[in-house]
């Protein structure tokens, strides 16, 4: 086993274990942290594939921004522990059976004979001055511009959908700022002097 293979197996094992941890952990904060580990491990694998830009973006955007936001939300919701999974005990033997069947079949089909290092040539390592950012930038606005623009539209849709779901303008009992009223306030309204009756 070469050093590269060793690193690959370490990252892969870390990724799989943390992915399982995300699903089975009862505490949502632990679940989110496991997901962070999963992202970091997959970023490591991308680095090994010489896609350093993607690996770094995964860490910066997902771990740095998205998951942090996610953790904030989980903490604010004050979910101590998820309610116990009532149906889980009843179904797990069946689930394990299906899992074993599926994984067994998948291993049988994509056995080493199809996806081994011997049958697939190892990618030629790029020279030292190879830039992943340059390679991406050369195609993303030229060859793949159509797909890139559609991805941008999907983000637009995400914004529209999120706002239309979260914006409660039509409800009567929504608490909102009335800015014109705030501006027109007078000094007397801002401060009310109360005589302290407790002490003299």
């Amino acid at each position: 086993m070469t050093l590269l293979q060793f690193i690959f197996y370490v990252f892969s094992a870390l990724m799989l274990l943390s992915a399982v941890g995300t699903i089975i952990s009862r505490n949502p904060v632990h679940g989110a942290l496991f997901l962070v580990v999963c992202f970091v491990a997959s970023a490591g694998i991308w680095l090994m594939l010489q896609a350093e830009f993607l690996g770094l973006v995964l860490v910066l955007v997902y771990v740095g921004a998205v998951m942090t936001l996610f953790l904030f939300v989980v903490m604010m919701l004050n979910l101590d522990k998820l309610p116990s999974r009532a149906g889980f005990k009843k179904y797990w033997p069946f689930g394990i059976l299906i899992l074993l069947l599926l994984v067994g079949l998948m291993i049988y089909v994509v056995a080493p004979s199809h996806l081994s290092l011997a049958s697939n040539a190892i990618a030629i390592p790029h020279p030292a001055d190879y830039s992943n950012v340059q390679a991406l930038g050369a195609v993303i606005y030229t060859q793949y511009v159509y797909a890139f623009e559609i991805a941008a539209v999907i983000l637009l849709v995400a914004i529209i959908a999120a706002i239309s779901l979260a914006f409660h303008a039509f409800h009567q009992d929504t608490k909102r700022q009335n800015i014109s009223k705030q501006v027109q306030t007078t000094a007397a309204e801002r401060l009310r002097l109360v005589k302290n009756m407790g002490k003299e």
């Binding site: 797909a147 559609i150 999907i154 849709v157 529209i160």
Partner: peptide, 23 residues
């Protein structure tokens, strides 16, 4: 495959929101 998948997602995402619009 790239456009196929992006198109599929662009089609589905607004429908999920449309279903949930009656909050």
């Amino acid at each position: 495959f790239l456009t196929l998948y992006l198109g599929l997602e662009l089609m589905s995402l607004p429908i999920y929101a449309l279903t949930a619009l009656q909050r």
